[in-house]
Amino acid sequence: MIDYFAKHSDMLMSAFLEHLQIVFITLIISIVLAAVISYLLLKSKKATNITVNIFSQIYSIPSLALFALLIPLLGLGNKTAIPVLVLYNQYLLIRNIMTGMQQVDRSLLEAGTGMGMNKWQLVTKVQVPLAMPSIIAGIRLAIISTTGIATIAATINAGGLGKILLSGLRTMNTYKIAWGTILSVIIALVADMVLKLLEKKTKATKLNEI
């Protein structure tokens, strides 16, 4: 196994980096989009529930199906994969952002308004910092989800570690299959551990501040 890695490290590493790239780009776009949508939803609890509901229905649609439905519109490869991945992440991100924001103690918001903060300041200086653990949990789930679905995107010609898995399947190359799996698990595992630590850290400061 190690032999195989040594001999084919270029190929494996390039797929690994490609995968990271896709996850990273997707994540940035997803977070920005989710942040904008969440800010707009802060006004209405009803609108929030409806929106989260719609995205949760989308999230439950199998990825391959969503890819298949959008290929006629967007074409093969990353052009369809990334929009779909961004779409899936909205459910996880918006749900966690909104839950985190809504759980902020009303009295703190009252105190802030009383001090003379406007809405933007309340959001950025009070709500978001206190909602951090929940937001980071959402990002963590989004990364794991994106990593997994990105491997599937290889079936529609996107890049990344899925390519290694599929090629391994075609040629019955167990090393390829093993390494493809291990490398994608590594991405998810590292992201999971790092973000869980961040979550804990933001939880601790949250309690200290109160």
Binding site: Q57, P62, A65, L66, A68, L69, P72, L76, I156
Partner: peptide
Amino acid sequence: IFTGLSLLRYSLLIIGGGSVAILSL
């Protein structure tokens, strides 16, 4: 879906993808 992908036949993609989506929902 996979047949649709290999033949690039959009109708199959939509039927396959749509059916799975509807089944799931």
